[in-house]
């Protein structure tokens, strides 16, 4: 297996994916996380693209490649093609919009149909700064997440509340899953970039 130059600035790559109804703030969460910016009228996402940020967890540098998807249902034919490559998927709803919360189950099913079995999910209620407009309580979010068996957070791209936390939390869980899998398989510890099949193409 090819070895990259020692100057590489990271130890592993994780491919994450944001899904959820149109307008829940997927692109805004990503923009906040990657560029620390917020724009209330951020341009619609048409199709699918990604942004990158490298984070550090337990001394390991992890490069996050986060895919952002169009929310309108008709684009699912396109976006679901990318589910399989993702190690983590962020299901986003808008706490001020009941319907986006109700749709979480649909998204959950779509994810199950198209993603890998071991893909780690997380549920995120965005726009939790909008106190007056809130339509979905934290408790309901929490209880749905429990029912689906996935972790949960509320966040705000606008006020930068819990944004880093959600990505870190997901990355950490994935990293731990990877570690325990490696232990199970009695493979040597440490996450190796080159062991990730989807990372080899360009090396």
């Amino acid at each position: 297996m090819a070895t990259r130059t020692p100057s590489r600035a990271y130890d592993s790559i994780l491919k994450l994916l944001l899904v959820g109804d149109s307008g829940v703030g997927k692109s805004c969460l990503l923009l906040r996380f990657v560029e620390d910016k917020f724009n209330p009228s951020f341009i619609t996402t048409i199709g699918i693209d990604f942004k990158i940020r490298t984070i550090e967890i337990d001394g390991k540098r992890i490069k996050l490649q986060v895919w952002d998807t169009a929310g309108q249902e008709r684009f699912r034919t396109i976006t679901t093609a990318y589910y399989r490559g993702a190690t983590g998927i962020i299901l986003v709803y808008d706490v001020t919009d009941e319907r986006t919360f109700e749709n979480v189950r649909n998204w959950f099913q779509t994810v199950h149909q198209h993603a890998n079995e071991d893909t780690q999910l997380i549920l995120v209620g965005n726009k939790n700064d909008e106190k007056d407009l809130r339509a979905v309580s934290s408790e309901r979010g929490e209880s749905l997440a429990q029912e689906l068996g996935i972790p949960f957070l509320e966040a705000s791209a606008k006020t930068n509340d819990n944004v880093d936390e959600l990505f870190f939390k997901l990355a950490k869980i994935i990293q731990e899953n990877n570690k325990s899998n490696e232990n199970l398989n009695s493979n040597n510890g440490g996450i190796n970039v080159n062991s990730r099949t989807e990372s080899k193409g360009c090396c």
């Binding site: 693209d49 990604f50 490069k63 490649q65 970039v193 360009c202």
Partner: peptide
């Protein structure tokens, strides 16, 4: 991008062509 990021070439191409 390939040099820097070591993503799959397909991802890099998708990214560059869509932007």
């Amino acid at each position: 991008m390939e040099e820097e990021d070591c993503f799959t070439k397909q991802d890099v191409i998708h990214d560059v062509l869509s932007k």
